[in-house]
Design a protein around this nucleic acid. Structure first.
Lengths: 220, 220
DNA sequence: TAAAGAAGTAACTAGATGGTGCAATAAAGC
DNA sequence: GCTTTATTGCACCATCTAGTTACTTCTTTA
């Protein structure tokens, strides 16, 4: 009777349901924050029953924590794939700056999720073991790059990898999270392709000037 | 009967009540965001009746907008008092970086308020005429400084004041708003006096290297 | 000093909101 | 097939929350 060759879509699929809930939750939390997010909206957007959310994730807070964890794992995983070791130090550094920028641009939810986490004093991160693991590797990466560049004579000595990491993140992060207020205060649209390109160039220059011994080659 | 020479504290004082409400609202909005803030909490903390909030400020949203406006006016006013014109360009630039840092450090509510505003796409700022006024003056200030430094030969030519402004804000702002997640990810307390001092030094160096022609004097 | 208006209070409402109890149904194991 | 277990849906609740109604009390001023 039923053709089984192509397995028909499962009517009950725990994994798929959980994935839909997580995706919907990410969107909703990113859009409205933890307090502003509505569980009913998440359920509706996930095409799941609200009951499922509590079945799989226990509570709104736990769901938020899970969303946050997944978001951190995602960016850290992407960073690891950069393979900075295989590039010249200067190139590797520039690549990291560009990657960070692009990630924020393409994943704006990440920014608001982190903001929400910090509004709650990051108590959702403290609980998480996953976060610590991925973070450690990440911090090591820039440290190794700085060492390499120092030895090759490209980079100045004694730069703290944590400070550099923070700065690279900051100059992109701030631009994007505050893009709305920024566009008003500075009276220009910060999100046009031209504006984005200009900012990225400025950021690369900022970091190269900070880290490199000699000046970056005068513009293209 | 009643001695009127020393006017006894007024039992009814519209201005004082409004001020108390605004102060309480600032705290509550900064702590919990727009959605998370509770009007009842604001009323209680202001030692005012909830009805008064609606009497003076019409709605929760309007109150939020007012708090935001006041916060922007406060920082922009403080910046104007810096009197950068009277300093050497390099000194003036360093002063601006240090001021921005100190302001964020001493007014952490400002950061979360701005974050909340941006979570809501800054629609509370768009409505406000006050913001535009104070913003314009502020942007001009750094522009004038850059011009002056360029002419004196201290600064590189062609630096966009808006990009510089954003960068100066970013390297402090990011550090503070994400201090909770940062302390976990980087596995060090970012708020100890030593950590704060180190970061400020790093920030000054970042900006001087970005803007100045010659290297900043090799550290002490 | 009387009238008018401003400042303040308590109790209340209508609608939302996170979270549940319980039964129904599909899938997996025997 | 038949039992067991995991997945899902519906209806419901207790509580919270922004905003309001109706009223009292203080202050000013004519």
């Amino acid at each position: 009777m039923t053709v089984k060759s192509a397995p028909r879509p499962r009517i009950r699929d725990a994994e798929a349901t959980q994935a839909r809930i997580l995706a919907a939750a990410k969107k909703e939390f990113a859009k409205s924050g933890l307090a502003g997010a509505r569980v009913d909206v998440i359920a509706e957007r996930a095409k799941a029953n609200k009951r499922m959310i509590y079945h799989y994730f226990n509570s709104k807070e736990d769901l938020f924590q899970r969303v946050l964890e997944d978001a951190y794992v995602d960016i850290r995983t992407a960073e690891q794939k950069l393979d900075l070791d295989r590039l010249e130090p200067r190139e590797a550094l520039e690549r990291l700056v560009r990657f960070t920028w692009d990630y924020y641009l393409k994943n704006p939810e990440f920014l608001t999720l982190v903001n929400s986490a910090n509004l709650h004093k990051a108590r959702h991160l403290k609980k998480s073991q996953t976060i610590e693991q991925v973070s450690r590797r990440f911090v090591g990466m820039v440290g190794a790059l700085l060492d390499r560049g120092e030895k090759s004579g490209d980079f100045r000595a004694g730069i703290d990898p944590v400070q550099l990491n923070i700065t690279i993140a900051a100059i992109g992060y701030y631009y994007f999270t505050n893009r709305f207020s920024g566009s008003i205060i500075f009276q220009r649209d910060l999100m046009t392709p031209a504006a984005l390109e200009e900012r990225l160039r400025f950021n690369v220059e900022t970091i190269l000037r900070l880290v490199c011994k000699t000046e970056p080659p005068a513009g293209k």
